[in-house]
């Protein structure tokens, strides 16, 4: 699996911290609140407070910092781009100037702010997946979407799709690697050539991958039918979600924090 070892997005780190134990619904709402907050604040102090809050949650979650920071690595290029765009494109009081590129105090401020905002956003949301198992996550989403059923939101179907996707991602990655190797053994070259040529070289990989995925989907549908699946109606849950006291407190504190910081800063 050498080719795909760098994929860590959506990874779950099992644990039993206060954060791990929270109801997934609490964590999902909390994450949404955090996103809202990060788009509301517009001052250095606001960011500082949001950062403190996230650092606090990371401490509580007992997730090692290097794992949190590793999540930022794939975003490094985007981060750099965002920061430099703001740095060079904002007009205002110049700090220095090289040829036609002008760096301004305003630009510096905006650039750093945007960088911090993006980094906090990624850290905050990855905290959700790092501390919540995929099953809990889908259960949480399903439960939160349930009220939308009346207006046609297919809550159960969405959750089922997510579960199956999560279940089959490792299988498909493994399969992709195997097909790639088999085609390389027949002289295929996935690395060199121009854009068009490279896209074309993917056909021997993508066609079998899709054909096999459809075959799997067929098999799975039959297997699910044989196991009595007939949609979400009348289904019970192996593990029921439990919204407890800790959740009430966590949610209360989050809301209060977001309102306070969001409005004040």
């Amino acid at each position: 699996m050498a080719l795909f070892k760098n994929i860590t997005i959506g990874q779950y780190i099992p644990g039993n911290s206060a954060i791990h134990r929270l109801d997934p619904r609490t964590k999902i709402i909390g994450t949404v609140l955090l996103i809202v907050l990060l788009f509301m604040v517009d001052s250095f102090l606001g960011y500082a407070l949001a950062a403190v809050a996230i650092f606090g949650i990371v401490q509580l979650s007992e997730i090692p910092w290097r794992i949190i920071l590793r999540g930022l690595r794939p975003l490094f290029v985007i981060l750099l781009l965002t920061v430099s765009l703001h740095l060079f494109m904002t007009e205002g009081t110049p700090i220095f100037r090289i040829w036609f590129i002008e760096v301004t105090w305003e630009g510096l401020f905006r650039g750093v702010m945007m960088g911090v905002r993006l980094a906090l956003l990624v850290m905050g949301t990855s905290l959700l997946t790092l501390t919540t198992s995929p099953i809990n996550l889908t259960d949480g989403i399903e439960s939160l979407l349930k009220p939308g059923k009346r207006i046609g939101v297919p809550a159960h179907e969405l959750a089922m799709m997510m579960t199956i996707a999560l279940r089959f991602i490792p299988t498909l990655l493994e399969e992709a690697e195997k097909i790639m190797k088999a085609q390389m053994a027949r002289g295929a070259d996935f690395q060199s050539g121009g854009l068009m040529q490279r896209a074309k070289s993917l056909i021997p990989l993508l066609v079998p991958l899709f054909v096999n995925a459809f075959r799997r989907a067929d098999d799975l549908a039959i297997a699910m039918e044989a196991r009595g699946y007939r949609g979400g109606e009348g289904r019970t849950k192996f593990k029921e979600l439990h919204f407890g006291q800790a959740d009430a407190i966590a949610l209360g504190v989050s809301i209060a924090f977001v309102v306070l910081v969001g409005v004040l800063f």
Binding site: K178, A182, A185, V211, N212
Partner: peptide
């Protein structure tokens, strides 16, 4: 080298395209 050392993987029919 791969032209000289041919390799048939397990379930090779899953790689037809």
């Amino acid at each position: 080298i791969r032209q000289k050392v041919g390799m048939v993987f397990q379930y090779p029919e899953h790689q037809l395209f």
